[in-house]
Design a protein around this nucleic acid. Structure first.
Length: 270
DNA sequence: CGCACCCCCTGCCGGC
DNA sequence: TGCCGGCAGGGGGTGC
């Protein structure tokens, strides 16, 4: 579910309220998240002050006052929300982090595909990968062009490969390629510099606009304060098979690319 | 290297 | 109405 814009929206919604707060208690009610929640997790987090809230690709990171990093990945259905301590418990509340101001951060995740850990900063790249963030200046047309060379994989798969580009998932890969006018199935190596330039520009435009709209709420995404996003109303192609292309009215087509549902305009995208 | 095919899970939707 | 298969924004592993 949550891709870069959703994670960034969660980060922005939580940061002002939790930076500087101290964790007074941690309750782990379900350890069976991805990779398992380590036995040491609660003790590593309890008593620590939250120094900052940052993001790396689809990972949320909270540097702590002892130099370690609280790392959260929301998987498909994870929600990390801040609420007063008396908030009623819900099904699938797995981790509850009490703060020193009477608020709690709750991690809820029906499918349990998310990840929750406290790690040493030296482990960051090993945990999150080294893909370039598409909002970073390092994601330049030249850098993308270099990534595409000698790659037979479809450009959409490359954009979604977190080891290369960090933060783009299925919704935004579809939207970015529509905006760039590039077919999702095009082999990466067959892209020209000009295509890469348009994909880089489209990535920035789509992701920043999605952040401005608070992310896409398809079914269960909410930000750190429980608010929905609205970018789903601006989707041009994702989940819009058969509906008219916003540019030329040609019906949007769907097919599977590397195992993922893919949507594109057969006329606008080459 | 690329990809099909497994796995991890719950929830929802459409067809019968 | 209920059951069943398919599918869903995530990632990881295996084997060809």
């Amino acid at each position: 579910m949550p891709e870069l814009p959703e994670i960034e929206t969660v980060r922005r919604s939580l940061a002002p309220a939790i930076v500087g707060r101290r964790v007074v208690a941690v309750r782990v009610q379900e350890r069976r998240l991805r990779g398992g929640v380590a036995a040491s997790f609660a003790t590593a987090l309890a008593g620590r002050r939250i120094a900052e809230v940052t993001r790396r690709g689809k990972y949320l990171l909270a540097p702590l006052d002892d130099g370690r990093l609280w790392l959260v990945h929301l998987g498909m259905t994870g929600q990390l929300t801040l609420a007063p301590r008396d908030r009623p418990a819900r099904r699938h509340d797995h981790i509850v982090v009490e703060l020193d101001d009477g608020f709690v951060i709750t991690y809820n995740d029906p499918r349990r595909f998310g990840r929750m850990a406290v790690i040493a900063p030296s482990r960051l790249v090993a945990e999150t990968g080294e893909g370039v963030d598409p909002l970073d200046d390092a994601f330049s047309p030249a850098a993308l062009f270099a990534l595409t060379r000698a790659r037979r994989t479809p450009i959409k798969a490359l954009l979604m490969d977190q080891r290369r580009v960090a933060g783009v998932g299925n919704i935004y890969a579809n939207e970015i390629l529509f905006r760039a006018g590039v077919r999702p199935g095009r082999r990466a190596a067959r892209l020209a510099r000009d295509d890469c330039q348009r994909i880089v520009a489209a990535s920035r435009a789509v992701l920043m606009e999605a952040i401005r709209r608070g992310g896409s709420s398809i079914s269960d995404y909410r930000d750190g304060l429980g608010r929905e996003g609205w970018f789903q109303l601006d989707h041009c192609v994702y989940d819009r098979a058969g509906r008219p292309c916003p540019t030329c009215r040609t019906p949007i087509r769907t097919r599977v690319v590397v195992g993922r549902s893919t949507f594109y305009c057969p006329r606008c995208q080459k």
